[in-house]
């Protein structure tokens, strides 16, 4: 007997109703962003989705033009959906488990921006590199 012999059917996903709710929420936040420029985040892990609805949300939002990959303490996948301004941000740990799953309403997700602290450290490193290349200090 194979798994297919067990007659398990999953009731229609649309009956659960969370998909409509989240899409409305996204639309309302996107409207606010257009009006006031207020960015916002939705934590998908805090919402009760059935597996079908989660897939339904992926299918509905689709994929847009931009995809970014972040590689720090595990991967992060960041892409714009086919609705500009609506981004899907998924953080993984090094083992590949999802540790945060977010919808971000912004022109660019905050995590993509270079951080001032990192830029500062990076600048120092760049100067150090130049020093070692030229063998003399560079004026700031």
């Amino acid at each position: 007997m194979s798994l297919q012999d067990i007659h398990i059917r999953v009731a229609d996903a649309h009956t659960v109703g969370s998909l409509d709710a989240i899409l409305n929420e996204i639309a309302s936040r996107l409207h606010d962003f257009v009006d006031t420029g207020a960015t916002s985040l939705i934590d998908l892990k805090s919402l009760p989705f059935s597996a079908e609805e989660y897939e339904g949300l992926r299918a509905t939002l689709g994929r847009g033009e931009v995809t970014a990959r972040l590689d720090s303490i595990g991967d992060s996948e960041i892409y714009e959906t086919r609705f500009p301004g609506v981004w899907w941000v998924t953080h993984y740990n090094v083992e590949g488990d999802i540790v945060a799953d977010l919808i971000e309403i912004a022109s660019v997700p905050a995590i993509v921006h270079s951080q001032p602290e990192d830029i500062y450290v990076g600048l120092a490193r760049l100067r150090q590199t130049l020093t070692s290349v030229r063998g003399e200090p560079v004026e700031p």
């Binding site: 985040l41 720090s72 303490i73 540790v99 945060a100 905050a110 995590i111 951080q115």
Partner: peptide, 23 residues
């Protein structure tokens, strides 16, 4: 040697874990 961005990612995961608003 953990970057600020990695730290922010960690904090986003923490917010999810603590069931706090992602903001």
């Amino acid at each position: 040697g953990v970057s600020r961005r990695a730290f922010l990612k960690f904090c986003a995961a923490l917010a999810t874990m603590m069931a706090l608003p992602p903001s």
